[in-house]
Simulated assay, not measured.
Amino acid sequence: MAISLLWADGENTPPVPQSFTPSGVAQRWPVGLPHAVEAAIWRGDALGSPVTTTLRTGFETLDAELPGNGWPCQSLTEVLQVQPSVLEWRLLAPAMRVVVAQGKQIVVVGPPKAPHLPGLRHLGLDERQLVWINADKPVERLWATEQLIKANAAGMLVSWLPQARQEQVRRLQVCAQGCDGPVILCRPESAAHEASAAPLRLQARLGVDWELHVHLLKRKGPPHEGELRLPSIPGGLEAVLTPRLRYPSRLIAARQSRELSHAVGSPSSRHPSGRPAAAH
């Protein structure tokens, strides 16, 4: 049974809240919120305002989709991919160049493959400002990552933690709030189905035309639809790729078209039974 609620004055709407002065005179509260309160409210259909500084990613398309237009500092960011050590450097290199230009160090913890110094130079990174911590065991990588975050010892910290548990990521996020630079965790794509305390999570994969495809799994803002295509030719290939090789997808499509035309053949050159027609 539905019960209808009526207010004391007989109207169906609640009375406007009132306050009283010391003399007992009633005053109505303002309908709108104070400007300071209004500015602090984040609505879920808009990108949130970061509470910390950010570092530009070097990709304008990606910056436009991130709160604060860049990698968040004093916070964790998770980069999820199918195979490690394939695209992290290409994705993070533009921001790393900014960190190196500021005289700060890049610290990497437990990369599955040794950093390739000539490749780093092609990306514009100075190996003298790169610190590589070779930690093979998961517990060693986790311990080194936490200590570096607490010590605030890097302009950017990149750590490979494929086996990190939810409570461990949560602990790192708490510690990262005192770290001035971005903290990037590289994890497998299967971790996308797990809950994470990282405020920013993204999936990345390689495209055919030397680009990176990025989908934002989690951000402070509305859900991200589709994928971002970020141009990213590997270091050292920019100067040697011909115009045709810059778009391999066009070459693949042309080849498939030729193969299809050869497979179908010309109808006029074949007999209805499937045998070639006899010459007259």
Rank of each mutant, 00 (worst) to 15 (best):
P30E: 13
P30S: 13
P30H: 12
V31C: 04
V31S: 14
G32L: 15
G32Q: 15
L33Y: 14
L33K: 06
P34K: 00
H35K: 13
H35W: 08
A36R: 10
A36T: 12
A36H: 06
V37P: 00
V37M: 13
V37R: 08
V37F: 09
E38M: 09
E38D: 15
A39Q: 12
A40S: 15
A40Q: 12
I41P: 02
I41N: 00
I41K: 03
W42T: 12
G44R: 06
G44E: 07
G44Q: 11
A46G: 04
L47P: 11
L47C: 11
G48A: 14
G48F: 10
G48C: 12
G48V: 06
S49V: 14
V51D: 09
V51M: 09
V51K: 10
V51E: 08
T53G: 15
T54D: 04
T54C: 10
L55D: 04
L55G: 07
T57A: 01
G58Q: 01
G58D: 00
F59Y: 11
F59C: 00
F59G: 01
F59Q: 00
E60I: 07
E60H: 07
E60Q: 10
L62A: 00
D63S: 09
D63K: 06
D63I: 11
A64C: 02
A64N: 11
A64V: 06
A64F: 01
E65G: 02
E65D: 06
L66F: 09
L66Q: 04
L66S: 01
P67M: 09
P67Q: 06
G68D: 08
G68E: 10
G68Y: 09
N69V: 03
N69Y: 14
G70Y: 08
G70P: 13
G70L: 11
W71E: 05
W71C: 00
P72T: 12
P72N: 05
P72G: 03
P72Q: 03
C73S: 13
C73P: 07
C73K: 07
S75D: 12
L76C: 06
L76R: 03
T77R: 01
T77V: 10
E78V: 04
E78I: 06
V79K: 01
L80F: 05
L80I: 03
L80D: 02
L80K: 00
Q81Y: 10
Q81F: 09
Q81N: 01
V82K: 00
Q83F: 08
Q83A: 13
P84V: 09
P84I: 11
V86H: 11
L87Y: 05
E88P: 05
W89K: 00
W89V: 11
R90A: 12
L91T: 08
L91P: 02
L92N: 03
L92E: 05
A93D: 02
M96I: 11
M96D: 02
R97F: 07
V98S: 12
V98A: 10
V98N: 03
V100Q: 14
V100N: 05
V100S: 12
V100F: 08
A101I: 07
K104R: 12
I106A: 06
V108L: 13
G110P: 05
G110H: 02
P111R: 04
P111L: 06
K113D: 13
K113A: 11
K113N: 09
A114M: 15
P115Q: 02
P115R: 02
P115V: 07
H116P: 00
H116V: 11
L117E: 11
L117W: 10
